[in-house]
Design a protein around this nucleic acid. Structure first.
Length: 213
DNA sequence: ATATCGATTATCT
DNA sequence: GATAATCGATATG
């Protein structure tokens, strides 16, 4: 089934993010990440997230304390934390909780709604069919590249302000069942079930379960 | 189909 | 100096 273009969409307020990361991660599913607000807008629905709980979560970057790299995590909720990993990829988080408390949510996968062609260009790939769409935004590194997210450009950006280059909106979409699993790609606290995704959604990252045949 | 590995750099020990 | 919240290419069953 084709993705539905969001009609009336408004930015989530700061209070939405000023809660425990676990709660925000779950409730962000079905919301929309938007790049720009003008004519060539990029928009994609959030279908997979992970919660990082702050200084006491050994898997969180905040466990290293408030440094030049992680300072956004220790600021107020609703701001973009962008980091560079493996010498190749940027990843996008949103800060949660409140000033001094460093919870965050990592965006792991999106379902493209608007601007697929521009996303493909940013990814250096081409779309030949619906089968190619997940390659645009399925995985934290991929979605960041599709949206042109870099640390220099987006770290510290206010995601609750629809006039900023990058923001998070609500369009009335109500998702289906939410599934929970351990977080991906980490070694510490690897048994904590802090990954959330829309069950059965084709854009969730990782191995696909072959649908029969 | 799954498994392994190289890329490439900011950050921390 | 080692590691990392990843990806894509290549090798192998």
């Amino acid at each position: 089934m084709p993705a539905v273009i969001p009609k009336s969409i408004h930015a989530l307020e700061r209070a939405f993010f000023a809660r425990p990361a676990r709660t925000v991660a779950r409730e962000l599913l079905g919301k929309v990440l938007v790049r720009g607000g003008g004519t060539s807008r990029l928009a994609a629905r959030i279908v997979e997230t992970e919660a990082y709980l702050g200084e006491n979560d050994p898997a969180a970057h905040a466990a290293a304390g408030n440094t030049a790299r992680t300072s956004v995590l220790f600021g107020p909720a609703g701001f973009a934390y962008v980091y560079f990993i493996y010498g190749n990829h940027y990843c996008l988080n949103v800060s949660c909780e409140r000033e001094g408390k460093a919870g965050s949510v990592l965006f792991r996968a999106l379902e493209p709604l608007e601007g697929m062609e521009e996303m493909a260009r940013a990814r250096g790939t081409e779309i030949h069919g619906a089968k190619d769409l997940p390659k645009l935004t399925s995985g934290p590194g991929r979605l960041a590249q599709a949206f042109g997210i870099t640390r220099a450009r987006d770290n510290g950006c206010d995601l609750t302000f629809s006039n900023s280059g990058l923001w998070i909106g609500e369009d009335g979409f109500r998702g289906g069942k939410i599934a929970v699993s351990p977080r991906i790609g980490i070694l510490k606290a690897a048994d904590e079930r802090l990954r959330f995704f829309l069950a059965g959604n084709a854009f969730v990252s990782g191995r696909k379960t072959p649908a029969g045949h």
